[in-house]
Write a protein that binds this DNA or RNA. Structure first.
Lengths: 362, 362
DNA sequence: TTGGTTTACGAAAACGTGATAGTGTTGAAA
DNA sequence: TTTCAACACTATCACGTTTTCGTAAACCAA
C-alpha cells in the first residue's frame, strides 16, 4: 500500500517543518519546496487538475490541508484584476438609515463572496474625493455611494466621472444627482412626501408646516416638492412662512419654536425623524399636545420614531432593501462586464416606501 | 529651450494616445512604452530618484500627471506584504454604539493612511469565523473586533488564536474575553455600573431593579456584578427577583411589565438604553411617573436616551474614543512589528465613562 | 524499431510595483 | 593613452497566484 507509506513519511516530515516555519501563512512556493515538486504542480493539485497524478495530488492536498493553506487574496486580486471588494462611500455611519443600507449591502455582498470596504466622507467634499481616489487605485471593483452634502452643494462631480471613465462601475443611492450617468437606487421622495402630507390632510389637518433641509440636499428638495404638490392638489393655500429649512441641527430648536408660535398650525411634516422629535419636544414645551393639537409625521423610519413619546408616524424607506438592491446592481454589472463591454444601459431603481402609522398622528 | 520643445512633442503625443488607450488606469509599463524608456526609469522618475536625468524625470512626471497615474494598491500590497487595511468584525452595524466605534476607528485609520474593511457577524459564530478567515488571507494587516454573542456563549475562540498565531495582530473591544491574549479596549463595566447604581442610592432610591442581558454576554455580566456590589456596599439587601435577564428584545416588554408590578421598586438600572426606554414606556402604561415614581438609568449613551421622553440618564461610554484607541493600538503594533519581533506586551486600555444626568433621574 | 499518443510534471509568463544590481557612455585625472 | 568615477539608464528579481506551453518518460500500435 504505497499510499499509506507516503502518508507516513509525509507526517513525520510535517512535524519537523512545523518547528522551523511555525504557523505563519504557507505559500505555494513553500509547499512546493517541502514536497520537492514545482509550484505549478502544487497549484494544479489543489485545484484538482487531472494533469497531476493521483499520488502527488493527494499528497499535496493533505499537506496543504494540514498547514491550512489558503490562497493569498492579494495575489489573486492582482492576477485576476479584480478584488471581490465593494467600496462604500457614505456621509456618516452613526446614522440609522446609512447603517441600515450598509447592512443591506453587506448581506448581498457576502452571499456573493464580496467584502465591503467603507469610507466616510463626513459630508465633506474633500474627504469624499480623497477616499474615492484611494479606493479607485485597485482596491475595489466598484462603488456604492451616497453624496456628501458639500458635494451636492458644490455640484462638483468630477471625481465620480473619473472613476466611471476608468471603467469602474458606480451605484448611487439616496442622495444622487442627475448629472452623473450611472445605476441608482432611490425612493420616490416626491411621491412619498406627497402621500405623507395627503394622509395629514385626510385626517382633517388644515395648516401643515414643513421642516426640511436646505435645498441643495437633493432628497430635501424633492420632499419639499411633494409637500407643495399635495397642498396645491387639495386647494390648500401654500404659505412660504410654513416652510423652514434647517441648516444646523444644533440650533434648530429655536427656529422650530418660533414656527410653532403660530397656533393655527395643526400638523408638521418633517423630512427626517430628528426634526420630528425635536418638533414634538418643542411642542410639548409650549403646551401643545401631540397628536391632539399637532400631528407630526416624519420621513425615514428609524429608532427614534419607534421609541419617542409619542411614537412617530413615519414614511419608511427600507435601507436594507436599498442596500440589497444597490449591491445586486453593482455585482450584476461587475460579473457581466466581461461579456459585453460597456453597454451603458443604466437603470434607476425606485424602492417602495410605506407609511407607518403611530401615535403622533391619529 | 529644449524643455519646451520636449513638452511640445510630448503634448501632441498624448492626444494621440488619448484616443487609443482611453482613460483606463495607466500602469508604469504603459508609460514606459509610450515614452520609450524602461519601467525602472519611470518608477524612479516618479519617486524623484536622482539616478534619473532631469529631462527624463520631468518628462515622465508630466506624462504621469496628465494621465493621473496612481500606483496600483494591490500591486503595492503584494510587494510590501502589507495592505494598509484594517479589518473590523462586529456583531451588528445598525447599532449606535458599534457605529460610533467604527467612526472612531475610521478617523484614526484615515489619518494614518489606512482603510477599513468591515464584516458583520450578525452575532453568529459561523459568520464570525468565516469573515475572519476571508480577511486573514492577505486582505488586511490586522483585526479590530468585538465578539459575537454566540462566540461568547460557545467560548470557542480558535479562529482568533489562529490569526494571532499567524502573526496578525488583533485588538478586541467591548465584548472581549480573557481567554485570548491580545490588546484590548474596554470600559470598566463593573465600576461604571457601580457608580450608576450608587448615584441612584444617593438620590434616595431604595429598591433598585436591574434589567440586564443573559450572563454569557461579558459586559452584561460585569455590569450585573457592579450592580450587586453597589447594593452590598450600601447594605441594601440583594434580591434575585429584582434582576431580570433579557434574552429576546421583542418579548421583553412583558417581562419588564411583570417586574414593575412590584410598586416598591423605585428605580431601574438597565444595561442598555433600549431596555431603559422600554422600561419607561411600560412604567407610563401602568401609571407610573418617571422619574417621580421610578428613576431610570441606562448604560450606553445613544440617540434614544437623548430624544426619549423623559430623556434618560446614562452611563456614557464614548465609542469614538474606544475606536480611536483601538485603531491607535493596532496601527502602533503594525508599524513597530518590524523592529522588534513578537514582543508580546499586550495592553488592556480602559476608557473612562461618565454619568450624563438627564430627566429620568432627579 | 519507429512513430505517435498519453501521462505527469515543470518552466515561464503575467498581474503592477519597487529595489538591487548591473551596464554602457562620457569625462576627467593620472 | 589608460583608469576610474560619475552619470543615466536598464535588466532582473520578488511578492503569490494561475495558466499556457513545453517536454521528458512511458506506453502502444504498426
Amino acid at each position: 500500500m504505497p499510499l499509506i507509506k507516503t502518508n507516513y513519511i509525509f507526517i513525520t516530515k510535517i512535524i519537523i517543518i512545523n518547528f522551523t516555519i511555525m504557523k505563519r501563512k504557507v505559500t505555494l512556493k513553500q509547499i512546493a519546496k517541502e514536497l520537492d515538486v514545482s509550484i505549478s504542480t502544487v497549484s494544479k493539485s489543489l485545484r484538482n487538475s487531472l494533469e497531476i497524478g493521483e499520488d502527488t495530488r493527494l499528497k499535496v492536498q493533505a499537506f496543504a490541508k494540514f498547514y491550512n493553506y489558503k490562497p493569498n487574496n492579494i495575489a489573486l486580486s492582482l492576477k485576476n484584476r479584480k478584488t471581490k471588494t465593494i467600496g462604500i462611500i457614505i456621509p456618516e455611519i452613526v446614522h440609522h438609515f446609512f447603517s441600515t443600507v450598509i447592512n443591506g449591502i453587506e448581506q448581498v455582498a457576502n452571499e456573493n463572496g464580496y467584502s465591503v470596504i467603507i469610507c466616510l466622507s463626513d459630508d465633506s467634499f474633500d474627504k469624499e474625493v480623497l477616499n474615492m481616489e484611494m479606493l479607485a487605485n485597485g482596491s475595489i471593483d466598484g462603488f456604492i455611494m451616497s453624496l456628501s452634502k458639500e458635494t451636492q452643494f458644490k455640484g462638483d462631480f468630477h471625481h465620480i466621472t473619473e472613476v466611471i471613465d476608468q471603467g469602474m462601475p458606480v451605484v448611487m443611492f439616496d442622495r444622487v444627482t442627475n448629472e452623473i450617468l450611472c445605476d441608482k437606487v432611490i425612493i420616490d421622495d416626491k411621491l412619498s412626501a406627497y402621500e405623507a402630507v395627503q394622509s395629514l390632510i385626510d385626517k382633517g389637518r388644515k395648516k401643515i408646516a414643513l421642516v426640511t433641509t436646505v435645498d441643495y440636499v437633493s432628497v430635501g428638495k424633492l420632499r419639499t416638492d411633494g409637500y407643495i404638490k399635495a397642498l396645491l392638489d387639495n386647494n390648500i393655500p401654500f404659505d412660504e412662512n410654513l416652510i423652514i429649512k434647517i441648516e444646523d441641527v444644533d440650533t434648530c430648536e429655536i427656529i422650530i419654536g418660533k414656527l410653532l408660535e403660530d397656533k393655527a398650525i395643526d400638523a408638521v411634516f418633517a423630512v427626517n425623524e430628528l426634526f420630528a422629535v425635536i418638533c414634538i419636544k418643542t411642542a410639548n414645551k409650549i403646551g401643545l399636545n401631540v397628536p391632539k393639537d399637532l400631528a407630526v409625521i416624519a420621513f425615514t423610519d428609524g429608532i427614534i420614531s419607534k421609541y419617542s413619546t409619542p411614537t412617530i408616524t413615519t414614511v419608511s424607506q427600507s435601507g436594507i432593501k436599498m442596500g440589497n438592491k444597490a449591491a445586486k446592481m453593482l455585482i450584476e454589472r461587475l460579473e457581466s462586464e466581461h461579456e459585453d463591454e460597456e453597454e451603458e444601459n443604466y437603470k434607476t431603481e425606485v424602492i417602495e416606501t410605506h407609511l407607518i402609522e403611530r401615535e403622533s398622528t391619529s
